[in-house]
């Protein structure tokens, strides 16, 4: 008889994942406010693709559909990936990325609980390497573009690739604030002048900085619900801040202030939703600190010195590789052996 305790807390994987989805809602709402409803289309597309791929893979692997389709983990992967892809991306981009994330990054490694890498970030990495041009056309925030697309026009472009006559893609999209900063700095424009460009707001990108605040709100909810601990967000954001701060102090003309890095790109999404993925992250408190600090440092390095517009995805994946090593070396001492140190 496989019983050890007869009572259990009424908590389930499905409920935990659902709370993560809930925590994303403030960020998504602000996203819609600033960029229009196109992101909802990508999220829906990604969700449908994720569930369909999950079902197909479970079938192929002879696993029961019901418990796994209902665990909501595929939806978390789908939403995080959709939020990392430009909302105006063609439909197949979302589908390819999500299908790859679920089938290869998750199920080929053994499905729920067994993937060594964050599936959404694998999906993102595949897309940015394979379709770089599609991944850089981000919608310009409300009130910034030369013109704005209605929802019908957005749908027509996502599914048909057609823009209304007379409107070019460049007229409705922009590079990300991080990307713009990098290219403009390479053109030797002074930092002050760059930050004066209309796409920049009070902290980082206009619009996106507010969406980042939405993610913080969701992150606080997750902390409060004890789904994540403080270790990862604190170490990640702290390291990113300190690293950016050091460069900024040394050379203020070329290195942007640290708060910019915290609110630009996927930093907040990464701090509270991506790096906190329990499956691909370390389990010990000390391990979480090391893992997140490494990711914070790498994010900065990739953003500032690397070739990609943002560094969170690759930093996450690189640190995912280190997780078994980190866990093995950060085992806390057990009961009664604390005074003698670990092991």
């Amino acid at each position: 008889m496989l019983i050890s305790t007869f009572i259990s807390k009424p908590d389930t994987v499905s409920a935990i994942m659902l709370r993560v989805l809930l925590a994303l809602l403030p960020g998504i709402a602000l996203y819609v406010w600033y960029y229009g409803p196109a992101i909802l289309v990508s999220i829906t597309l990604a969700s449908i693709t994720a569930l369909a791929t999950e079902a197909a893979m479970l079938r192929l692997r002879n696993r029961p559909l019901k418990p796994f389709l209902g665990d909501n983990s595929a939806l978390v992967t789908a939403w995080l990936l959709a939020l990392s892809i430009p909302p105006l991306a063609p439909w197949w981009l979302v589908v390819v990325g999500t299908a790859f994330a679920i089938s290869v990054a998750k199920h080929l490694y053994g499905g729920l609980g067994n993937n060594p890498f964050n599936p959404s970030m694998i999906g993102y990495a595949v897309l940015i390497i394979s379709f770089p041009s599609h991944m850089t056309h981000w919608l310009s925030p409300h009130g910034l573009g030369q013109t704005e697309l209605g929802f019908a026009d957005q749908l027509a472009f996502i599914f048909g690739g057609h823009l209304p006559s007379g409107i070019k893609l460049d007229a409705v999209t922009l590079a990300t604030p991080l990307d713009t900063l990098k290219t403009q700095l390479q053109l030797d424009r002074p930092l002050k002048e760059i930050l004066g460009m209309p796409i920049y707001g009070a902290l980082a990108g206009k619009g996106s900085e507010v969406v980042a605040l939405g993610y913080i709100l969701g992150g606080v909810y997750l902390l409060f619900k004890r789904i994540i601990t403080w270790h990862v967000p604190a170490a990640f954001l702290g390291t990113l801040f300190v690293t950016a701060g050091i460069f900024h102090l040394v050379d203020q003309a070329h290195y942007v202030a640290p708060l910019f890095h915290l609110t630009a790109g996927a930093a907040m999404l990464g701090a509270f939703f991506i790096l906190t993925d329990p499956i691909s992250g370390p389990t010990t408190p000390m391990g979480k600190l090391i893992f997140a600090a490494g990711a914070g440092f790498l994010t900065y390095v990739i953003r500032v010195f690397g070739g990609f517009p943002d560094g969170v995805a690759f930093a996450t994946l690189l640190m995912n590789i280190c997780v078994p090593l980190i866990d093995a070396h950060t085992q806390p001492p057990v009961f009664g052996k604390k005074d003698r140190g670990a092991k």
Binding site: P67, F68, L112, P278, I279, G281, T283, V334, F335
Partner: peptide
């Protein structure tokens, strides 16, 4: 029915022997 471990470490959080039950 039991699902796979998602390494959430709720078990480690409550272990009175300071073990890492998920490991």
């Amino acid at each position: 029915p039991a699902l796979p471990c998602i390494r959430c470490t709720r078990c480690a959080d409550v272990c009175p022997a300071d073990l890492q039950p998920q490991e």
